[in-house]
Computed example of a mutant assay.
Amino acid sequence: MAVHSAVPPGRSLPAHARDLVRMHEAVIGGGRPQVPPRPLVSRSWSRALSLGLAADSMNERDSVSETEVVRRRHASPLRQVIGDLRQVIGAMSDAGHMLLVVTDADGVILWREGSSAVRRRADTLGFAEGAEWTEARVGTNAIGTALAEAAPVELLAGEHFEQNQHPWYCTASPIHDPRTGELLGVIDVSGPALTLHPAVGALVETGRRLAESQLWHSHRQRLERLRRAGEPVLAAGPALLVDSDGWVAHSAGVAVGERIAVPRPGQVLAVPGLGACLPEPLGDGWLVRPAGLARQVVLDLDLGRAPVLSLRTGETGWRRPVTRRHAEILVLLGKAGHQGLSAEALSRALHGDADHLVTVRAEVSRLRRLLGAIVDNRPYRLAEDVRLTVHPGQ
Rank of each mutant, 00 (worst) to 15 (best):
V3Q: 02
V3W: 02
H4D: 07
V7F: 09
G10I: 02
A17W: 00
M23F: 00
H24S: 12
V27E: 04
R32I: 03
V35N: 01
V35P: 01
R38S: 04
V41G: 03
S42H: 03
S46R: 14
A48R: 09
A48W: 10
L49G: 01
D56E: 12
N59T: 07
R61Y: 01
V70F: 10
V70L: 15
V70W: 09
R73N: 06
R73G: 05
V81P: 03
V81W: 04
Q87G: 06
Q87L: 12
M92L: 11
L99T: 06
V108P: 08
W111D: 09
S115H: 06
S116N: 06
S116T: 11
A117H: 08
A131Q: 12
A131M: 15
R137T: 15
T145K: 12
E149Q: 15
A151F: 07
F161V: 01
E162T: 07
P167C: 00
W168V: 04
S173A: 14
P174N: 03
P174R: 01
I175N: 00
G181M: 00
L183A: 01
L183M: 00
L183F: 02
L183I: 01
L184A: 02
G191A: 04
H197Q: 03
E205H: 09
R208D: 05
R209T: 07
L210Y: 00
Q214R: 13
S218H: 13
R222Q: 15
L223N: 12
L234R: 14
L240M: 08
L240H: 13
S244E: 15
A249Y: 06
H250F: 05
A252G: 09
G257E: 07
A261H: 02
V262H: 05
Q267C: 09
L269F: 11
V271A: 07
G273A: 05
G275I: 13
E280A: 15
G283W: 14
P290I: 15
A291L: 15
L293Q: 15
V297E: 09
R305S: 14
P307K: 14
S310C: 12
R312I: 11
G314W: 07
G317T: 11
P321L: 10
R325A: 10
R325D: 07
A327T: 08
E344D: 10
S347M: 07
L350E: 08
H351G: 01
G352L: 10
D353K: 02
D355G: 05
L357D: 06
L357G: 01
V364E: 06
L367E: 07
R368C: 09
R368Y: 13
R369N: 13
L370W: 09
L370V: 15
D376P: 02
N377C: 11
R381L: 11
L382G: 05
V386W: 08
R387H: 10
R387G: 02
V390H: 05
G393M: 05
G393W: 05
Q394S: 02
